[in-house]
């Protein structure tokens, strides 16, 4: 009987199996789901963030070179999603991989770190673009980016859209290239579609513009 049943089970489960293999970009994994439900503790987060300071700096301002992003002031939801995506392999960063695995951070620590970082002040001395792309960048931003990332580059915590204002130029540019080229696997497909036709000079312009935006007022 099993012999006949097995194919039936496979057929019956097929749609859900297929879905599991192609998660939508903002479908959160187990770890993030748990972390999102936990009320993070900023004081514990400060201690858990210590190993991250080697790259992201003590004030979480990152590197102006853009090698490591600024994390201070970023939405906790965004941070939780990204950390969870790194842990599940949906977003890959070999430099960070040894320091962010599930053997290092559990859901509680992720929630704590996210809560801590969200409350940190945002430095305006970020790595900025050359400035020459600002007007073209402004145009592109108004056309393709503003709907999700907001008029001030403030993003949207509920929808997992990151704050992009005052982020380091080189980091913005690198991520935009990865997303356009399909190399950042946890990207919003709408964004991939929107910037697919962008040339490198377009990405440079829009990254330039976002890097020049002042840190948004924190609610």
């Amino acid at each position: 009987m099993n012999r006949f049943l097995n194919p039936l089970i496979v057929v019956a489960l097929w749609p859900s199996v297929a879905l599991a293999q192609t998660p939508v970009w903002n479908q959160v994994g187990e770890q993030a789901k748990n972390a999102l439900q936990i009320k993070g503790d900023a004081a514990r987060g400060a201690a858990a963030f210590v190993p991250c300071q080697g790259c992201h700096r003590k004030d979480a301002s990152g590197r102006t070179s853009g090698a490591y992003p600024r994390l201070s002031g970023q939405h906790a939801t965004v941070l939780i999603k990204q950390i969870s995506d790194f842990q599940s392999g949906r977003r890959i960063n070999q430099k960070m991989e040894p320091f962010i695995g599930e053997h290092v951070l559990n859901a509680f620590e992720i929630a704590d770190i996210a809560s801590y970082l969200q409350g940190l002040p945002i430095s305006a001395t970020n790595g900025k673009g050359p400035g020459s792309g600002v007007s073209r960048g402004n145009e592109l931003y108004k056309k393709d980016c503003v709907e999700c990332h907001g008029s001030w580059g403030e993003g949207n915590a509920e929808k997992f859209y990151p704050m992009v204002a005052a982020q380091h130029y080189r980091y913005l540019l690198r991520q935009a290239q990865l997303i356009r080229d399909g190399d950042r696997r946890n990207s919003n497909p709408d964004m991939v579609k929107a910037i697919k036709p962008y040339r490198d000079s377009d990405l440079e312009a829009v990254a330039d513009y976002m890097s020049q935006l002042a840190p948004p007022d924190k609610k």
Partner: peptide, 25 residues
Amino acid sequence: DGNEESGVPACIGCHQAQGVGYLIY
């Protein structure tokens, strides 16, 4: 500063200014 190219984090992150250490570090 570590080494941004090779992904070496700055030692100061965990071992703190002047290498005084911190908790488990």
